[in-house]
Design a protein around this nucleic acid. Sequence first.
DNA 1: CTGTAAATATACCGATCTGTATCGTTTTGC
DNA 2: GCAAAACGATACAGATCGGTATATTTACAG
Lengths: 212, 212
Amino acid sequence: MRRSEIRGHLLDTALRLFNLHGYHATGIDLIIAEAGVAKTTLYRHFETKEDLILAALERRDEESRAEMRAFVEQRAIDAYERLMATFDFLEISVRDKQFRGCIFMGAAGEHKEAVDPVFRAALMHKRLVLAYFEELAHAARFAEPKRTADMINLLHEGAVAIAQMTRTGEPVRQSKRMAASLLAQEVRAPLEPSARGEGAKQRASVSSGNAA
Amino acid sequence: MRRSEIRGHLLDTALRLFNLHGYHATGIDLIIAEAGVAKTTLYRHFETKEDLILAALERRDEESRAEMRAFVEQRAIDAYERLMATFDFLEISVRDKQFRGCIFMGAAGEHKEAVDPVFRAALMHKRLVLAYFEELAHAARFAEPKRTADMINLLHEGAVAIAQMTRTGEPVRQSKRMAASLLAQEVRAPLEPSARGEGAKQRASVSSGNAA
DNA sequence: CTGTAAATATACCGATCTGTATCGTTTTGC
DNA sequence: GCAAAACGATACAGATCGGTATATTTACAG
């Protein structure tokens, strides 16, 4: 393996083990053994275990949100359909044989203090995901995109929590049905009769003051 | 402290620390120091740390479900109102200053293997809570009490997960509104014109084959 | 009151934890 | 091709982990 790949390989290995066993239960010695590198090497890339955890979470945050975006955008053009497609993405994630619950919730669950950097990293991820939901809800012309995003978010979290116990994709399908039922009752701005010139002007410029 | 109280005191202390710091991060030495007992004493009552965890979860399981039942039953007579009152109970739990997320989800998150006794204990608790929701949904004459209970359950879990991050009660209030909206669309058996003699015959005899 | 079981305090065990030190080898950038 | 940097292997430090051993004191039941 090339030296330039080592850091990424370490992050991937650490993430896999954190997902399988948790953060406290995963020791440095196990990580380096699974990654096939020396302990010195790990500590050249990361000052402490906490730094490794933070870097791993940051990597997974960007990865998973990019994956969701890519999945959703190639799955549907219509913004409402994209909102619903987030559940399909979630179902695929949850049905993975290696699924052991959301790693960010797990990180927050093992680092409970609000000032803990790991907790804060997990919180930041959740805020960014919520901002994406809001972006989609806005594009789908929901009158209260923040409110709509909050509902989608809560259904996602509930589904993942239950799927963590049942180890099936059913809770996610259930949450999608609940979302369809709830969103049908939400107020939406009227659709324009045709794509006028001004149509592109107001798309997807989310304010998202809550992600700061 | 009387000797007969030591075991319970140890369980309470352990639960408090598990809730504050998690399971792996809470060492035996801290538990005995906080409880003010000798290590020998702890190991006379519990063979291993895992046994202590299991006993603590069992205690909390019974406690919390009894508390929820008591709260719900004194809060409302009407079965539908009782279903909604579970959210009020949840909000109180979540707004506690010591709230750090559901301790059963935390236990499952730190003991991820499906065969792990701790995971199984957490799973059992979740099944019993779900069975109670189903009992309430049945009493409220929902045509599909299992389906209704699943929805309530998912909203509970979602609210708790988000509240664990935001540290506010708002997600629980939101989930209650979502529940009201969703349940309004569920089919319910017609209310009898008056309390006939047969009324008592079909109440609250839940089957709950999923709790076994 | 008295015998016994359970509490305490303390020292200890081996294993494991995160992190460092040393040193020889390999890779990389220039 | 050469110097510098990164790597691997190993040993080790100091703390903490879960759990045990021992000896003494305390509390409770009959």
